[in-house]
Amino acid sequence: AITFRFEGQEKAKKFYEKLMRQNLEATIHIHGDEVHVTVH
């Protein structure tokens, strides 16, 4: 698994949606202002 870190939720959401379109499995974790997107 690879984890990407984002400042702010907007960028993270766009990235997450892009992964979903590519049929990749990903989970999102929100830590205050920092958002972690883990790709499995």
Rank of each mutant, 00 (worst) to 15 (best):
A1V: 13
A1Y: 14
A1I: 12
I2R: 06
I2V: 10
T3F: 05
T3R: 06
T3D: 03
F4M: 03
F4S: 02
F4P: 01
F4V: 06
R5A: 07
R5H: 10
R5E: 04
R5L: 08
F6M: 02
F6Y: 02
E7C: 10
E7G: 08
E7S: 13
E7K: 14
E7I: 12
E7T: 13
G8R: 08
G8V: 11
G8Q: 13
Q9Y: 15
Q9S: 10
Q9V: 15
E10A: 08
E10G: 05
K11G: 10
A12W: 05
K13S: 06
K13M: 15
K13T: 10
K13G: 05
K13I: 14
K13L: 15
K14T: 08
K14E: 14
K14M: 10
K14F: 08
F15I: 02
F15Y: 04
F15E: 01
Y16G: 01
Y16E: 01
Y16I: 11
E17N: 07
E17W: 06
E17T: 04
K18R: 10
K18D: 12
K18V: 09
K18Y: 15
L19G: 00
L19A: 04
L19T: 02
M20L: 14
M20Q: 09
M20E: 04
M20N: 04
M20K: 12
R21M: 13
R21Y: 07
R21N: 08
R21W: 08
Q22D: 07
Q22R: 07
N23F: 07
N23V: 04
N23M: 07
L24N: 03
L24G: 03
L24F: 12
E25P: 13
E25D: 13
E25G: 09
A26Y: 11
A26N: 01
T27F: 08
T27P: 01
T27I: 07
T27D: 07
I28V: 07
I28D: 00
I28L: 10
I28W: 08
I28G: 00
I28N: 00
I28Q: 01
I28M: 10
I28K: 00
I28R: 00
H29S: 14
H29Q: 11
H29M: 11
H29F: 11
H29R: 09
H29W: 12
H29K: 09
I30V: 10
I30K: 06
I30R: 07
H31T: 08
H31Y: 12
G32K: 05
G32Q: 06
D33T: 12
D33N: 14
D33L: 10
D33A: 11
D33Y: 08
E34L: 09
E34H: 11
E34R: 06
E34V: 12
E34W: 13
V35P: 01
V35A: 04
V35N: 01
V35M: 04
V35T: 05
V35L: 03
V35W: 15
H36L: 14
H36M: 09
H36K: 05
H36N: 04
H36W: 15
H36C: 07
V37Y: 01
V37N: 00
V37K: 00
T38K: 07
T38P: 00
T38V: 13
T38H: 13
T38R: 06
T38G: 02
T38C: 04
V39A: 04
V39W: 13
V39D: 01
V39M: 10
H40A: 08
H40F: 14
